[in-house]
Each structure stands twice: as C-alpha cells, then as structure tokens.
C-alpha cells in the first residue's frame, strides 16, 4: 500500500467562501480503489470540501494543497480536473432546460475521454448502465434535471459517474432525499462504480447508505476538519451514539 501513489492527498487545506473560513486544516489521503466515507452534521463543511475539490470558483483556497495523482490541482479549472479523472456527483444538480440528457452525456464522455465514441458503442454502454440504475429510456430525451424528482436526479448523477469512470468519484450526499428502494438502486450503482480503478469519497449525513456501500475508512467531519478516522465500525457507532459523542470525546483534549 505504502508504495502506491495516492489518488488524492489533501494537506492542511483552508478554504473560505466570501471571506468566511469554512475548511480549517483538512488532511485526507485516498489510495486507488479505496472507499472513504465522510460523515458529519449539516453545516460542518462537507459540501465545501466537495465543491473545492471540483474547483467551484466561489471557494478560495487560502492555505494547503490538493494533490491529485501527485499533482497540485488547486489552480485548475473544473474541466481540467474532470479530464484528469476527478468527478463530483452533486447533492443538488442544476436543471439545464433545453439540453437533452443524451446530448449532454455524449458531450461529457467525449470531453473526458478526449475522443469521439462511436454512436452504437456509446448507446450500448449507456443502455447497460441505465438498466443497472433502473433508468427508463425516456430519460435520455428529457432536459437535464428539468422537472426531475429527487431520486431521478441522483440516478442521473450516478449514471454519469459510471460512464465517466473517474479515478476518484466524490459523491456529495447522494443518499439524501431517496426512499429505501431508490437508495438500494443507487447503492448498487455505487458498488459497481467502486473498482480498483475508481476510488470513492462518499459524503453523507446519515449512516443509512453505509449499510449498502461498505467503506474502507470512515471520517468524522466537524467545524471544517476531519476530527476522527476509523473503519466501517465507526459509522455504526456514530449512528448509535450520535455526533455529540464525538464532540464530547474530543472536548477534553481539545482540537487544534
């Protein structure tokens, strides 16, 4: 393991939004093929981490570094990051009226893979992934996220991940707003995605999804930092004892 180059290595990352510090010294290393879960309360800065990783212009890195496959990506545009093999499944994907899902998927896959994919081949691949995620054909002719239900949006996000096959997929609260059936389907998609070639950073508020997707590591996020790291058993403990338990445990020694 140690000989491997990590996919992602975040060191002492400080990020602000509109002058307000949100991330305050994040450290995280993800090796190829690993599944990491970051758990934390709403407002703890989890989504800021995902946006920062993808390069949203609103988020400013004030200190620290993000190494992706050993290369600093802090100054790269989102499309440059995508082409290097980073992808983000959004918590709240935006609607883009007038742009059909199929046009968009083709443009996106072409951009990321850097070459045109024969229509037939692409359709075949798409159909296969759509079946897995129980996505209907009519999905393709609809406009991106326009009038989609919460579950449909999340399926489209995971569908994109499975087509783009990134080296690291950051899944931002992919489980939120899903009923149990949709959660199972989406989890199946995530498990298919999680291979030796694709590491996963699963950001979530609830332990629920971790019943279906088994992480190698669980991190607890609080006040803009990772304050505790453990194996998958940590998520169960969190579910049982709540986030307050971590807070209390940490209080006596204090967190720098």
């Amino acid at each position: 393991m140690a000989a491997l180059q990590p996919i992602l290595k975040i060191e002492d990352l400080w990020v602000s939004v509109e002058g307000k510090d949100i991330l305050k010294g994040v450290n995280l290393t993800i090796n190829p093929g690993e599944v990491h879960a970051i758990m934390g309360r709403n407002g703890s800065g989890k989504s800021t981490l995902s946006y920062t990783l993808m390069g949203h212009p609103r988020y400013h890195i004030n200190r620290g570094s993000i190494l992706f496959k050993g290369e600093e990506i802090g100054d790269l545009t989102p499309d440059e990051r995508a082409k290097k093999g980073l992808a983000l499944a959004f918590q709240y994907p935006v609607a883009i009226p007038g742009v059909s899902v199929s046009n968009f998927l083709r443009a996106s896959v072409k951009a990321v893979r850097g070459k045109e994919i024969p229509v037939k081949e692409f359709r075949q691949e798409l159909k296969q992934q759509m079946a897995l995620l129980e996505v209907k054909d009519e999905f393709l002719s609809r406009y991106i996220n326009d009038g989609f239900s919460g579950g449909e949006k999340k399926r489209l996000e995971i569908l994109q991940m499975t087509l783009l096959k990134p080296a690291l997929a950051v899944l931002d609260e992919t489980d939120s707003g899903l009923d149990i059936d949709a959660l199972k389907v989406v989890s199946t998609g995530i498990n298919t995605l999680a291979t030796k070639e694709t590491a996963i950073l699963l950001i979530t508020h609830y332990q629920r999804i971790l019943n279906y997707v088994k992480p190698d590591f669980v991190h607890v996020f609080q006040s803009g930092q990772i304050v505790k790291t453990g194996g998958s058993e940590l998520s169960e403990e969190l579910e049982e004892r709540g986030y307050d338990w971590v807070t209390q445990e940490l209080t006596p020694s204090g967190v720098a």
Partner: peptide, 9 residues
C-alpha cells in the same frame, strides 16, 4: 460549473 465539472470547457 455543472457542465465544466463534466469536462466541458
């Protein structure tokens, strides 16, 4: 941002 995160310039 959404489209750029999918590789489009």
């Amino acid at each position: 941002f959404y489209l750029m995160s999918r590789g489009l310039s």
